[in-house]
């Protein structure tokens, strides 16, 4: 406010300078806008190409040079995918793993994140450090032993084992992200609620969680996406019965052409919800990326 009024009083006759500047700026930003739209088309190019290829009849889909027009679009690849492979099961597995790990990660992560947000400053620096180190760890150094442990426990190739592994792998990040949201809620609120007779845990569930809704939603979206994206862990910890879609897609590669086209259809089915998420839940994605990393 102070800065605003100061600026207004020190810049008297603005109109004469402003006009040409604004016009130049407009032209510049129009060029920028066109360039950025081109960039986003380029970023989407792989999916556009895949979408075209899987809706062509099989005989032209693989033609070289590529056939760009004069064919009737068809959804045969999707039909084949649904009827001749276990895609429905793989999709169910992927969703079950993602939902399970999201729920567990939040249920155990929220109390931990809250506790950390109410402890002294150096704890958070150490937490960030741990979250980073575990994030950067080569996955195989935890996943290969998990493979052996899951076989020994008889839970190899179950969605449960995969979900448990993913919760653990992502938990440092989840806690770190949630902690940053909790840190924004003033401590005085805790005290007020506890004076009114709430226990610490009761206060957490009655006061904090409702306040934290956007933060929890953000963390939930990220944990869900991490589980949904995971390839390496799923490759090692699953075989046939709990295989996930990303693993399925890679096993289709290098096979027959129709199978390749089915893989493309599967990739498309996975891409569409993600496109929806990045438009509808954009606010949360952006919040999660900036809260989860820059702020300390």
């Amino acid at each position: 406010m102070i800065a605003d009024t100061a600026k207004a009083s020190t810049l008297p006759p603005r109109t004469s300078v402003k006009k040409p500047r604004r016009r130049r700026r407009n032209r510049g930003s129009r060029t920028a806008a066109v360039l950025l739209l081109l960039t986003s088309v380029l970023m989407l190019a792989p999916f556009i190409w895949t979408a075209l290829s899987v809706t062509k009849p099989t005989d032209v889909a693989f033609a070289n040079p590529p056939v760009l027009s004069g064919y009737t679009p068809t959804l045969q690849a999707f039909r084949d995918l649904w009827e001749t492979t276990y895609f429905a099961q793989y999709l169910t597995n992927t969703l079950v793993v993602a939902v399970m790990s999201t729920v567990v990660a939040l249920v155990i992560g929220i109390p931990a994140a809250y506790a950390l947000s109410r402890s002294p400053g150096y704890v958070s620096a150490i937490l960030l450090l741990l979250a980073l180190v575990f994030r950067s760890l080569p996955r195989f150094s935890v996943v290969l032993p998990m493979y052996e442990i899951s076989k020994a426990l008889g839970i190899y190739d179950t969605t449960f084992a995969l979900a448990a592994a993913l919760v653990a792998i992502n938990q440092p990040f989840t806690i770190w992200l949630l902690r940053n949201f909790f840190a924004e809620i003033p401590k005085e609120l805790d005290e007020a609620a506890m004076i009114d007779g709430c226990t610490r845990v009761g206060m957490l569930y009655r006061v904090m969680i409702p306040l934290m809704r956007p933060g929890i939603l953000t963390a939930g979206i990220f944990v869900f996406l991490f589980a949904f994206q995971e390839y390496l862990t799923a490759l090692v910890l699953t075989d046939t019965s709990s295989k996930t879609v990303p693993v399925f897609i890679t096993t289709q590669l290098g096979q027959t052409l129709p199978m390749l086209q089915q893989a493309g259809a599967a990739a498309m089915l996975l891409t569409l919800p993600v496109i929806a998420i990045s438009f509808i839940a954009q606010k949360y994605l952006v919040a999660g990326l900036s809260e989860g990393s820059v702020k300390g």
Binding site: S40, L44, F47, L270, T271, V274, S278
Partner: peptide, 11 residues
């Protein structure tokens, strides 16, 4: 932003 995020969010 939405168009660009797809490449990051997809497996």
């Amino acid at each position: 932003l939405g168009a660009m995020l797809v490449a990051y969010v997809l497996p």
